[in-house]
Amino acid sequence: MNIVQLLVDAASLGSQYALVALGIGLVFGVMRMINFAHGDLIMIGAYALVVPTAADLAAPLIGAWPFPLLIAGILCVVTLVALATERFAFRALRKRGADGSTLLISSFAVSYLIQSLVLFIHTGRPKSVSIFGALTQQVTIHGVRVGLVDIVTIIVTILLLLGLSLYLRRSRAGIEIRAAAEDFTMARMLGVRADRAIALAFGLSGILAAAVSLLYVAKTGVLDFRMGVPLAIAGFVGTVIGGMGSLPGAVLGGFSLGAASMLLQALLPAELRPARDAFVYGLVIVVLLFRPQGLFVTGNAGERI
């Protein structure tokens, strides 16, 4: 495999993990909750592409809509589900003063609930669906063949990061979210509405999850009701490597994790490849032993109250 190809692959998986980690990091910032169900939002976005049925063949539903509508449709579905989990599961717990670990457990419950529903409706058999067929091509750049879907993943990720960063810096709601992530009670004492700030963070995380749904399915074409779990773990580990509570940290952490696992996949001797994840997460443990505050956190920015 060519080195450029390898780097593109690594950056593509890194981008995907970065988006997942950022979605988890946004919610963690305002709520101090690790939302394990984030992976299942991604799964919901993927399943929304096809007709809900137990039949073997997955006939496309939203997946058959014209391209702009398809994207808008998946964005709406995932964002609405994200908002619904906040409104109907997490809000009540938060109002009763549940701590971070209670909230984490409840997010496991939400995660299993979503998975069970999908299992019930679609059965547990993996299905395949094809969207954005044009993306499956390879393109040749300077004589190197790379997957178009990987290039698109990287570009979409950069655009989303730029857009989100602009939103968080320029809009009042974005500034409120950043303030709430730093000192939630103080933000409230200045009139920031807690419910709104948290719902907004969930909404933004839903948008990121929807983007991952589409990029993931465009690349793999496979639907599986457990597909969100490894993604959520990767995103969670990414936020930890990056330093909990720091959004740039989450992005860099997620990216490093994805890139590292792709590089290991290619560079490990063939007989060790099945153990790739053992290497990746072993590396994570080593990193955290030396920098428990996270790789990309400077000073006390990662310190929480």
């Binding site: 009042r172 409120e176 950043r178 730093e182 200045l190 009139g191």
Partner: peptide, 19 residues
């Protein structure tokens, strides 16, 4: 004081303007 150290001075004031 509990100022938002990772926000700019202006952004600290903007947070309070929602009211």
């Amino acid at each position: 004081r509990r100022i938002f150290g990772r926000l700019t001075v202006r952004e600290n004031l903007v947070v309070a303007s929602g009211a």
